[in-house]
Computed example of a mutant assay.
Amino acid sequence: RRVADGRFIREAVEVSVVRRAALEIEPVALMALEHNLQLQKMAADRHDSQAFLSLDDEFHRLIAESINCLLAWETVENIKAAMDRVRFLTLSEVSPPDSLIEQHEEILSALKNHDADAAEAAMRRHLQEMIFSITPIAERNSEWFESL
């Protein structure tokens, strides 16, 4: 339940943040996001899940920072502990890093184009990945989850 609720809240916050960022983001923030994506690719190539997940979080934090709204990211961080456990468990088999990097690239592309609708849609697709990740993990490890 906490994972589902946390994902819902995270989506509401981050979709609003990325929409505003698409309209306001500056070139220096776009460069920071591009650099972060390069580091994500390197972590994925090394199969370094811990580094990858840290860079994934940083990617989202950088978007909030780009509109000077770190409180939004702090709010997400405060609710995502249960989500992080699922993310770590599903990274290699259900949500492979290459797929997540492609989703981040779509978000970045929309931000570069200052396309708020595309940024919102890309972020929503990215965060809804959690729904698809939970099901196979819950089926294999039912004792970890209460029924939704």
Rank of each mutant, 00 (worst) to 15 (best):
R1E: 12
A4T: 03
D5M: 05
A12T: 06
V13E: 00
E14R: 02
S16Y: 09
V18Y: 01
R20K: 07
R20V: 02
L23G: 01
L23A: 13
I25N: 04
P27H: 04
M31I: 00
L33V: 04
N36K: 08
Q40T: 01
D45Q: 15
R46H: 11
H47Q: 09
H47R: 10
A51Q: 13
F52V: 01
D56I: 04
L62K: 04
A64N: 08
A64G: 13
E65C: 07
S66P: 00
S66G: 08
C69M: 08
L71N: 12
T75L: 12
T75F: 15
V76C: 07
N78K: 12
I79V: 11
A81L: 13
A81N: 14
M83C: 11
D84L: 11
E93F: 14
E93V: 10
P97S: 08
D98N: 13
D98P: 00
S99Y: 13
I101D: 03
E106Y: 06
E106H: 10
A110L: 06
A110Y: 03
K112P: 02
D115I: 05
A118T: 05
H126P: 01
E129A: 14
I131S: 15
F132N: 09
I134R: 04
P136F: 10
A138W: 03
A138G: 05
E139L: 14
E143Y: 10
W144F: 13
W144P: 05
E146K: 06
